[in-house]
């Protein structure tokens, strides 16, 4: 049967060179951070979901953006702790399709977590998070003491 079989030109497949490297680095970081018991669960290391992250900074804010397609807003958890922002959550599969025959399963379902270390302290009470078109955008205003300041020199 050739039902819905994918034919794709190999030239236009995803180039994930740097993405892979980053994933590997995350995995190595995690190796040193998680207790041993966690590591023995193969699901965490081998089939985890590492959503793509972007981090930007200007003089007032730090911006974190994560590609999290197909989530429900209430299944996304944001946690600010010790100068790091953790984005965790769970993506659930469609109940209606549980009985269906699977032809292709490339999407990840289940729990994920990623943490980014913020470059400066932020004002925790003014963080804003938006979820639109499967992209989570978090704006973290820098704490007043972290902003660059001009100091006037007094002449006496």
């Amino acid at each position: 049967m050739n039902n819905l079989a994918r034919w794709q030109r190999p030239e236009i497949s995803t180039w994930t060179g740097f993405g892979r490297l980053t994933n590997l680095r995350d995995e190595i970081d995690r190796l040193f951070e998680v207790p041993l018991a966690e590591l023995t669960r193969p699901s965490q290391l081998l089939s985890g979901w590492t959503p793509a992250f972007d981090v930007h900074e200007d003089k007032d804010n730090v911006y974190v953006r994560a590609e999290l397609p197909g989530m429900r807003k209430e299944d996304i958890d944001l946690l600010l702790h010790n100068g790091s922002l953790s984005i965790a959550g769970e993506r659930k599969s469609d109940e209606k399709l549980r009985e269906a025959e699977v032809y292709r399963a490339e999407r990840f379902f289940g729990r994920f977590q990623r943490t980014v270390t913020l470059p400066t302290p932020v004002a925790a009470d003014r963080i804003n998070a938006q979820y639109k078109d499967g992209i989570l955008s978090v704006t973290l205003p820098k704490a007043e003491e972290a902003k660059p300041k001009h100091i006037d020199v007094n002449v006496s």
Partner: peptide, 23 residues
């Protein structure tokens, strides 16, 4: 595009495309 300086970038600007053969 996000404002300011890039500290870390994993996303891409490329558009998506994929072709499937139909039953």
């Amino acid at each position: 595009a996000l404002p300011g300086e890039t500290l870390f970038r994993e996303s891409t600007d490329a558009d998506y495309r994929r072709v499937f053969e139909l039953d």
